[in-house]
């Protein structure tokens, strides 16, 4: 593209915007608002995912053992468990240690434990899965393998809780996609109609351009450029608003006495920011594409 074309395109972009500034401001504001909504969802998604991921890291399978296993037997079991697929770390918790833990946890209600004649708690092995393998499927697989050991009395790995949260994450992803898709579709519709209004106001100019030999591409390019710019600006405004709101909320909820003070709430990543800007530009471009296609055919 040579200097003449570039200069001509940007002159016509400037003229388009300056002849109907409020229309273009409305289009930019619509894109900004839509991307802000998507950005809020992205932030929720990123933080909830991070939270659940950190919970997943702590997921471990506890194999409760039958009583009266010899030390050699326990050691042999440890070695067998360590060889199971996906297991990273095996920790033995003896009956005494289990009781000591319970005492620590119930330090304010120790009287409840005083009547016990003997330690009712079983010894156990805690199996930690390798990083990234804490999926419901892997946990179920490991549990079924552990159930095959006759020394294992019972298992505990919070499968109900884990499946519920996995289900929630799946639902949240789907809901985000649907809402994000709807917001994008509405924004494209609004942008397309904004361009259509601009085109309608400029139909005589477009007609004259055609009469002097302008191709469709020559007529369309400034509209595409203008909407890409509006999309980019909308994206930037959305990011600034999102970041401002994020900082404001962080200042409010992370005071020492606040409920969520220990939560590590993060802003969306650079990739997400770039994706939001790209989405704004795409929405602008696609809106122009739809309206120009029908306008120039007519």
């Amino acid at each position: 593209m040579n200097l003449t074309k570039l200069s001509s395109i940007f002159q016509r972009v400037r003229r388009n915007i300056s002849t109907s500034p409020y229309l273009h401001l409305a289009a930019t504001a619509t894109i900004a608002f839509s991307l802000l909504v998507i950005g809020v969802f992205a932030m929720l998604y990123v933080n909830i995912s991070a939270l659940i991921h950190s919970w997943q890291q702590d997921v471990r399978v506890v194999a409760y053992l039958k009583d009266e296993l010899s030390e050699e037997w326990v050691e042999s079991l440890r070695q067998s468990f360590a060889k199971l697929n996906g297991v990273e770390e095996v920790t033995y918790v003896s009956k005494d240690e289990a009781m000591a833990r319970l005492r620590r946890q119930m330090k304010h209600r120790l009287s409840l434990l005083e009547g016990l004649r003997e330690n009712p708690l079983p010894a156990s092995f805690e199996l930690q899965l390798v990083h990234g393998a804490q999926t419901p499927e892997n946990l179920d697989l490991l549990a079924s393998q552990l159930r095959g050991f006759p020394e294992v009395e019972d298992l505990g790995y919070g499968e109900t809780w884990f499946n519920r949260f996995s289900g929630f994450i799946g639902f949240f992803r789907l809901a985000s996609l649907i809402i994000g898709g709807l917001v994008i579709a509405i924004t494209v519709f609004v942008c397309a109609n904004t361009i259509r209004l601009t085109l309608y106001a400029k139909r005589e100019e477009v007609e004259i351009m055609r009469l002097v030999g302008a191709t469709d591409a020559f007529i369309k390019t400034p509209f595409y450029v203008q909407n890409l710019i509006e999309g980019l600006l909308g994206g930037l405004v959305a990011l600034v608003l999102l970041f401002g709101s994020f900082k404001f909320l962080i200042a409010r909820i992370q005071t020492p006495d606040a409920l969520l003070s220990s939560c590590d709430i993060r802003f969306i990543s650079f990739t997400w920011c770039a994706a939001l800007l790209a989405a704004g530009m795409f929405v602008g471009w696609f809106g122009s594409y739809l309206s120009l296609k029908s306008f120039l055919r007519s």
């Binding site: 074309k5 200069s7 001509s8 302008a214 020559f218």
Partner: peptide, 17 residues
């Protein structure tokens, strides 16, 4: 601009225009 438009559509050099 009205006259230059004709030359711009043919992609002529800006100095020529």
């Amino acid at each position: 601009e009205n006259i230059a438009l004709v030359l711009e559509t043919t992609g002529q050099d800006i100095r020529h225009i």
